[in-house]
Design a protein around this nucleic acid. Sequence first.
DNA 1: TCAAAATACGAGTAATAGCTCATATTTAAC
DNA 2: GTTAAATATGAGCTATTACTCGTATTTTGA
Lengths: 205, 205
Amino acid sequence: MSSAETPAPRKRPVQARSAITVDAILTAAAHILEGEGMEGYTTNAIAARAGVSIGSLYQYFPNKEAITAALVLADAERLYEGLQAASDGSAGAPFLARLEALLDVVIAHQMERPVLARMIDMEERRLAHDPALQAVHEAGFALVRQELQDSGLSLPFGLEASTVDVFAIVLGICDTAGERGETDGDGLKARIRHAVLSYLGLRPS
Amino acid sequence: MSSAETPAPRKRPVQARSAITVDAILTAAAHILEGEGMEGYTTNAIAARAGVSIGSLYQYFPNKEAITAALVLADAERLYEGLQAASDGSAGAPFLARLEALLDVVIAHQMERPVLARMIDMEERRLAHDPALQAVHEAGFALVRQELQDSGLSLPFGLEASTVDVFAIVLGICDTAGERGETDGDGLKARIRHAVLSYLGLRPS
DNA sequence: TCAAAATACGAGTAATAGCTCATATTTAAC
DNA sequence: GTTAAATATGAGCTATTACTCGTATTTTGA
């Protein structure tokens, strides 16, 4: 009654084969979403593509939405871990270098599978209220906020709003690039870099 | 067979009452989308809310998608006409004033019915391939491109890419504001203004 | 006034797709 | 080897919902 959120997996996979099954389901879901869009994205199709029975699918996912949520969450987590690694890896470097390291991660993530990225992006909006997803968002947000704070820059609209805007600018340009089918990652990076740096009051070189 | 696009209305309304019916359907669709989301957005619900029989609905819309498409298109056209009016109304004014006039329109559009704007935005992505919608997009795009060209500014990435980015920045910040439920239109405008002006290499006051 | 066109009606159809459950198979524990 | 738990199966149930179609009503034009 109370919960509008995605229920937890019906069964915790404990044996190795079940973990494989879960993985196959998520992989299949991603492939279908990428290749067929929401049209072909049905639970039966996912199970078939995963080489798994529909019954097995529902042993680990309480409903279709949970599959999508898991997919989106995994994607967000992957991105966040990349950002974290980039942040750690550029420790001590000047702000510009750190920003570039983060941008590289975002753009690599976008360019790797652009069509899937776009589909996941759309689903992400629908599932924006999922607590687990929100948590990852907040973590990524906190990471960028920390970077901005550490930069020592005087931010145009305060720490919070400026972080929000930097996020919005990066994602806005990225999404639009995905929508337009752009393929030039370097050019995309240069434009986002320019937008962010100038927003922050830094003269882009 | 060939057309993946939205078919034309089944019947052209010629009498006054049918125009009222069509209007009631679109209004109802918007209200449902706004109040219930995609959950309650069914053709039967739309017809009921419009005070119209399901048969009448299908007399003017060949399928559900056509209703959504009409809704999205009308919204896009309204925005475009607003931009056009703002552009005309600020003829001769300096670039900054013209930009502000355009931003006022975008933000008013966003703030008027934020929840509906968000839903329409999401549907807009799904229907991005609709030719009529693309035409309106292109018209709006052309309008902004012209403004940028007329500004005489030396654009950071050329006319085309810079226009794309300005669009992306404005929509990115706007969408994020909608997602976050922001209500401060003036603050939002200031931030978008800052983002765009600095992107264009102008010192925001 | 009257026929024809336009519009409105809504019960019913059809097809899809999410999901269940009774059963079978595999693995783990001892 | 035996048992119990975990996992896998897929035919089929069920509910939803987009959409049709035969009929009734209203409007128009002459």
